Amino acid sequence: MDYELFWISGSPYAWRVQLAFEYKGVPYASHRLDSAKRENRSPAFLALNPRGKVPVLRTGDAALYESVAIIAFLDRSHPAVPLFGQAAQEHGRIWQRVSEFENYTRDLFDVEIVRPLLRGHAKDDPEAMRASAARAYDALGWMEQALSVAPYLAGDDITAADIVALPNIQMLRRAAARPEAIEMALGLEDLGARLPALGAWLSRMEKMRGYDAAYPPHWRSCSRAGSAPAT
C-alpha cells in the first residue's frame, strides 16, 4: 500500500504520525507544507482535509486525518510492530493512556502556555502564565507516577501512548526555553529536574528508533544557527 503524508514542520500532531511511521519502519512519500505560504489552506489540500490541518494521510483515493486515527489505522495495517498492543487488556490500557493525555494534559500545555508564548502574548499576564506552569506540573503528575513503575506510559514497551505524548511535551519544553519564559521563571524548560521519571522517559524516547528521522527539520536548522524559535 502506498502512503502520502502531508505535514508541517513543528506540528506536534504531524510529528506523532511521522514517529509512528519511522518506528514501524513503514515507508511513505513525504509532502511538507509551508504554513507561511498557506499551503495548508490551498484548494487542493482542503479537498483532503476541509479543516485545513495536518497531518493528512492519503492512501490511493482515500484521505485520513486526525493524528491518533492515522496511528490507529497504521497499526491495524502494519501490526508487526504493535503500538496499540495485542491482548484486549493491553489494548484498553494503551487507549486509556492516550485518552488521559489528550483529555487532561495536552490542552493545558497548548492553550495556556505554548500558544501565548508563540503568539507573543505571554508577558501580558505573567502571573497567569506562572499559574498555568504550576498546573502543568500537576497535569503531568499521572505520567510521573506511571513512569515511576514502568519505563513507558503503558508498560515495558513503546506504544501509541508514548508517541502521542512526546511531541507535545517536546513542544512545551521548547516554548518554555524562550527568553520571555525564562524571564517569567516558568520553570518548564527542564522538566526532569522536578519530574525525574519523566526526564528519564524523555531521554529514552529521544533514543527510540526513528526519532532523528522524524525530528522537525526547521528545529534542527534553527538550533545549528544558534536560534530556537518554538514554532
Rank of each mutant, 00 (worst) to 15 (best):
Y3S: 02
L5F: 12
W7A: 03
S9H: 01
G10P: 08
P12V: 03
A20H: 11
F21T: 03
E22R: 08
V26W: 13
Y28F: 15
Y28H: 14
S30D: 14
S30M: 11
H31P: 04
R32A: 14
L33M: 07
D34H: 08
S35F: 15
A36P: 00
K37L: 11
N40F: 09
R41H: 05
L48I: 01
P50T: 09
R51N: 11
K53S: 00
P55L: 01
V56F: 04
R58F: 08
G60H: 11
L64C: 04
S67E: 04
V68A: 11
A69P: 01
A72N: 02
F73K: 07
H78I: 08
P79R: 10
F84H: 06
A87P: 12
A87K: 11
A88D: 15
Q89W: 13
H91N: 12
G92Y: 10
G92T: 02
R97Y: 13
V98M: 12
S99E: 13
E100S: 03
E102Y: 06
N103W: 08
T105Q: 15
R106L: 06
D107N: 13
V111R: 10
R119G: 00
D124Q: 07
E127F: 11
A131P: 01
D138M: 06
W142F: 07
Q145H: 09
S148H: 04
A154M: 13
A154L: 06
G155L: 08
D156K: 13
D156F: 06
D157F: 13
I158Q: 04
I158A: 05
A161E: 03
D162M: 01
V164N: 14
A165W: 07
P167K: 08
N168Q: 08
I169F: 14
Q170E: 09
M171A: 10
M171Q: 15
L172D: 03
A175S: 14
A177G: 10
A181V: 01
A181G: 03
I182M: 06
E183Y: 02
D190W: 05
A193V: 15
L195K: 07
G199K: 00
G199Q: 00
A200M: 11
W201Y: 11
R204I: 10
M205Y: 05
E206M: 00
R209P: 02
Y211Q: 07
D212A: 01
Y215E: 14
P216R: 12
P216Y: 12
P216I: 06
P217Q: 09
P217N: 05
H218K: 05
W219G: 00
S223F: 09
R224V: 09
R224K: 15
R224P: 04
A225T: 09
P229C: 06
P229E: 01
A230S: 10
A230I: 04
